[in-house]
């Protein structure tokens, strides 16, 4: 787990802690401890469990969300809910001067208020998620699976593409596939170092994504290979996009850490228009084969 986000939540964390201590001190000042024998342990366990789980929720929101309006709303809402729970739990242990004491009747108010805030926060979260999804387009298609995201390029891996192609096969959607390969990447890795190699991959991935259309998808295939998916696209249209990508990449003046001098890269690519009812493996094999052939031809020319 990563706890880096906690440092950015100091205000909210202190708000939660202060309000909890205010509640506890109010209860302690006004109430009197009950005798141990009169306690209803079933209630204590149930209400204690609610407190514990709410605290865990608050913890995970702190751990996983950056500060912002939605986060603040969620935390304040949960904190109100926690206050109600805490009052409920504490009055198992203490008794107040009379039945009509204000702490009794105020008990359930924060929970309602908190639930209201959280509902509002959830609606906001929903809107936020839509914005985020838009940011992710061209990197993500129809489903989300964070375990398939590649560490280096932050694109999805080949598995994701296979699943997508299989889905396309079942829905009978024609599409084009492209495979891109950075030339002499191994030599670059040897010459500079693997950190620079990783950075280069990341930047090339960015360029690819920038040059795609909204409905296309790019995944990292393996090593220095990228696979691009163009739904309902003819070969010539896809070729245009891929040519634009290769042009953009050839203009990337990548500066390795060691020398700081620009290194330029070319990419080889192959395209295939996939007919309906082709399975994922077959489709990928088609572009792979074309790319291999091209490389052979190129090598033969070089000799």
């Amino acid at each position: 787990m990563n706890f880096l986000l906690f440092q950015r939540h100091t205000k909210l964390i202190s708000l939660v802690l202060v309000s909890l201590s205010v509640v506890i001190s109010l209860v302690v000042m006004n109430g009197q401890l009950k005798a141990i024998e009169t306690l209803d342990w079933l209630d204590v366990v149930g209400e204690g469990g609610i407190i514990l789980m709410t605290s865990v929720w608050i913890f995970f929101i702190f751990a996983s969300r950056p500060p912002g309006r939605v986060t603040t709303l969620l935390i304040v809402g949960l904190c109100c809910f926690l206050i109600s729970g805490l009052l409920d739990l504490l009055d198992e242990f203490v008794s107040y001067p009379n039945d009509k004491f204000w702490l009794y009747w105020v008990e359930s108010l924060p929970a309602f208020f908190g639930m209201f805030l959280m509902t509002w926060a959830l609606y906001q979260w929903h809107q936020e998620q839509f914005k985020l999804n838009q940011q992710l387009c061209r990197r993500e298609a129809f489903y989300r699976e964070h375990s398939q995201i590649d560490f280096v390029t932050q694109l999805y891996r080949a598995d994701y593409m296979r699943t997508l192609l299989t889905l396309n096969q079942s829905q009978n959607i024609p599409y084009s596939l492209a495979m891109l390969d950075i030339d002499n990447f191994a030599a670059f890795n040897r010459r500079y170092n693997t950190n620079d190699g990783d950075r280069l991959l990341r930047e090339v991935a960015e360029i690819i994504v920038m040059n795609l259309r909204q409905n296309d998808l790019a995944c990292r295939y393996a090593g220095d290979r990228f696979i691009l998916f163009f739904p309902q696209t003819h070969l010539c249209d896809a070729k245009l996009v891929v040519q634009q990508i290769t042009q953009a990449i050839s203009h990337l003046a990548f500066k390795p850490q060691k020398t700081g001098k620009a290194v330029y890269h070319d990419v080889s690519y192959a395209l295939a228009e996939i007919k309906q009812n082709t399975d994922a493996e077959n489709a990928i094999a088609q572009v792979n084969q074309k790319l291999e052939q091209q490389k052979m031809i190129r090598q033969a020319q070089a000799c």
């Binding site: 080949a158 598995d159 191994a186 040897r190 295939y221 393996a222 090593g223 792979n288 090598q299 000799c303």
Partner: peptide
């Protein structure tokens, strides 16, 4: 070999185990 020979040396491979899901890595490397 790719690094030293500067030209393609074809190596064929056979494996006793099943085709793995990450076949792309085999092909690439």
């Amino acid at each position: 070999l790719k690094y030293l020979a500067k030209q393609r040396i074809t190596i064929a491979y056979q494996f006793s185990y099943k085709r793995p899901r990450y076949i792309q890595e085999y092909e690439e490397n």
